[in-house]
């Protein structure tokens, strides 16, 4: 059992929880993820680490409510205990294992979309702490769904560029339009890191790659064990089958088969969505009624 130091809703459907997990806090690095299981009957859900505090022995997870298990997790309040948190899993971001003098010679462009705002944060923070030059582009659908603005302003200042799809706050448009503006304005980037919904990563990667920027994306496919045993998270990278849990989750965007990965993501969507509705509205959505088109 792991204690939740603090649980809060960041917006209507995104929840932030600070969890006491000293082993993970001690060794985790930006780019890595954890597997969380809220209670005995819940799924094992992979979540990218969105912050950590080695001294306090805590890691922060940020969850978007999309299915039964994420809804259940978000119900856990400050002071309560979740059944399991395992990690840190996956490989740290590339720059963690490169000589710092080399990393410092580069300029990074971080791009976060929607929930992807959260996992980009520890990377940005790491760069700030290590004196690495960067810009950050954060995008969300609308102002009400914006998360972590304060944190980003504090760590990135004028290098933080915010856009909303509907123009309800700051810049209007997709992250790609801000990326294009920054590049057109003469900013030179050596590496782009894009994290968010698969479709956003696909287009952000295209924009960056077209500008000749080495681009990294963080894949978040379906997982079960997360330790390299089940193979659920396999994806094709550079024509080879890779496992996101041990080989990733970050991959060279130029080599990722986004369409194939998006296809696999759809595998359990309807069933999970049904389970969520069942939890919210009672056991009415069991499929097979002939009313839904799925």
């Amino acid at each position: 059992m792991f204690k939740i130091r603090k649980s809060e809703m960041l917006c209507e459907n995104i929840c932030k929880q600070i969890i006491e997990a000293p082993r993970i806090a001690k060794t985790c690095e930006p780019g890595q993820f954890v597997i969380v299981r809220a209670d005995e009957t819940a799924e094992r859900v992979p979540l990218t680490i969105s912050d950590y505090d080695r001294e306090e022995g805590t890691v922060t997870i940020t969850t978007q409510i999309i299915g039964a298990s994420s809804y259940k997790l978000a119900q856990f309040k400050t002071g309560e205990f979740i059944a399991d948190i395992t990690g840190p899993l996956g490989q740290p971001s590339e720059f963690c294992n490169e000589p710092i003098e080399e990393v410092k010679k580069r300029k990074y462009l971080f791009v976060g979309g929607g929930l992807g705002t959260a996992p980009v944060y520890p990377q940005v923070k790491w760069c700030k702490e290590h004196g690495v030059d960067f810009d950050v582009v954060i995008g969300c659908k609308t102002k009400d769904l914006l998360i972590m603005e304060e944190e980003y302003v504090a760590v990135a200042g004028e290098h933080y560029h915010l856009t909303t799809d509907d123009g309800s706050y700051k810049h209007k448009g997709m992250v790609t339009s801000v990326m294009e503006e920054l590049i057109a304005a003469g900013n030179h980037y050596d590496v782009c890191v894009a994290i968010g919904p698969m479709i956003m990563m696909k287009f952000a990667a295209k924009t960056a790659l077209d500008a000749g920027i080495h681009t990294i994306v963080s894949m978040n496919p379906i997982m079960v064990d997360g330790t390299g045993m089940c193979g659920a998270c396999r994806l094709v990278v550079d024509g080879e089958v890779k496992f996101a849990c041990v080989d990733g989750p970050e991959f060279d965007a130029s080599k990722v088969d986004f369409d194939g990965a998006m296809k696999r993501m759809s595998l359990y969507k309807t069933e999970e969505g049904r389970a969520y509705l069942a939890m919210k509205e009672g056991y009415t959505h069991h499929g097979g009624c002939g009313q839904c088109d799925t």
């Binding site: 082993r23 993970i24 001690k26 060794t27 399991d84 948190i85 395992t86 990690g87 840190p88 899993l89 330790t227």
Partner: peptide, 9 residues
């Protein structure tokens, strides 16, 4: 439980 050797430590 929940300790992945090679990762957690």
């Amino acid at each position: 439980t929940d300790v992945v050797i090679g990762k957690s430590t």
